[in-house]
């Protein structure tokens, strides 16, 4: 065998180094026949059968995505309340901070570390303009209230939306039709025009891309998430972060179970109530991943396999015959 001719010439015998030298040099002891290509072909056959079998028997999930049309039709009150919050700049997206806008103090920080602000406002979103006013302006006959809204001062706009949000929350079922009379300016008119637009299925195109190819669904997804309808559906499917949702798939299909540790931190205190939970947990996971990666150099951890002798099982034939 060529392997033998390539072996290193043994230096002076140093009993204490024997084990290490055995690890390093090419193996010079007994060998067994081993067919790499045969193993590969067998593996391909077994894994192929398993894959096709599981695909045929179990399949894969495909629940249709939620559309703005569906939201506006099924939960119009929630849609109107959300649209009002977008107009007034009080929605989650409006106050998110980078990369969507520069809301003060909104980014997740850890001491002096503020990675979120570091990237800057890369995907600028003005919720009033981008989610409500802009789409309405694309209509063939924009609502008359638009001109009033555009001419109003910021303070006036805030007063209108705050008053209407308040009134909606007090109305029975949040129903816009049952809102008490008040000074809401053009806000109810804009909301209802947007609602009709969404119910007709015209809002998605106006939000993301318009006439361009709709590859980027950022605004649609953010708008959906600002309401309670979409998160409610996710909650009923156990998909939200505080119910191990990161690992889960719809129905009973297995999801990304390898994210169990990432998901785990979001379930337990103090992490589940931290404002900067995402940053802290990503930090923990980066550290743990580095620890796993550099395990061979970490005293103590790298000795665990010696202390818990599972290798005695794996190499039991070898130890028996030594």
């Amino acid at each position: 065998m060529t392997t033998i001719s390539r072996r290193r010439t043994a230096g002076p015998e140093r009993p204490d180094r024997r084990g290490k030298d055995l690890d390093r040099g090419p193996w010079r002891g007994t060998v067994r026949e081993y067919d790499l290509i045969k193993e590969l072909v067998y593996a391909l056959v077994v894994v192929g059968l398993l894959t096709v079998g599981l695909a045929a028997v179990v399949g894969s999930p495909d629940d249709a995505p939620v559309t703005l049309q569906q939201w506006a039709t099924t939960a119009p009150s929630d849609f109107v309340a959300t649209a009002t919050a977008e107009l007034g700049g009080t929605s989650d997206t409006a106050q998110y901070g980078p990369p969507y806008n520069s809301t003060q103090g909104a980014s997740q920080t850890l001491g002096p570390i503020d990675l979120q602000s570091l990237s800057g406002v890369r995907l600028p979103i003005d919720t009033a303009q981008d989610f409500v006013v802009g789409p309405l302006e694309t209509l063939p006959q924009p609502p008359a209230g638009l001109a009033v809204w555009n001419a109003a001062s910021d303070t006036q706009r805030t007063d209108w939306t705050a008053a209407y949000s308040d009134a909606l929350s007090k109305a029975p079922d949040g129903d816009p039709a049952k809102v008490a009379a008040g000074n809401y300016g053009p806000v109810p008119g804009l909301d209802s025009a947007l609602l009709v637009m969404a119910q007709k299925g015209a809002l998605e195109g106006a939000l993301d891309g318009g006439t361009a190819a709709g590859l980027d669904r950022t605004k649609t997804v953010l708008f959906l998430g600002d309401g309670t309808y979409f998160p409610g559906l996710a909650d009923s499917q156990h998909l939200t972060g505080d119910q191990w949702g990161m690992m889960n798939e719809t129905g009973n299909y297995p999801g990304q179970s390898w994210l169990w540790l990432f998901s785990f931190w979001y379930q337990i205190p103090p992490f589940n109530s931290l404002a900067n939970a995402d940053l802290v947990i990503v930090g923990i996971m980066v550290l743990l991943t580095l620890a796993l990666m550099f395990l061979p150099f970490i005293p103590g951890l790298r000795s665990i396999p010696r202390l818990i002798p599972i290798h005695r099982l794996i190499w039991r034939d070898y130890y028996r015959r030594r």
């Binding site: 156990h238 119910q243 191990w244 690992m247 889960n248 798939e249 129905g251 009973n252 299909y253 297995p254 999801g255 179970s257 379930q267 337990i268």
Partner: peptide
């Protein structure tokens, strides 16, 4: 606090 979906558990 601990819940697991059946599909993930089986895997």
């Amino acid at each position: 606090q601990f819940t697991i979906q059946l599909g993930n558990l089986i895997v």
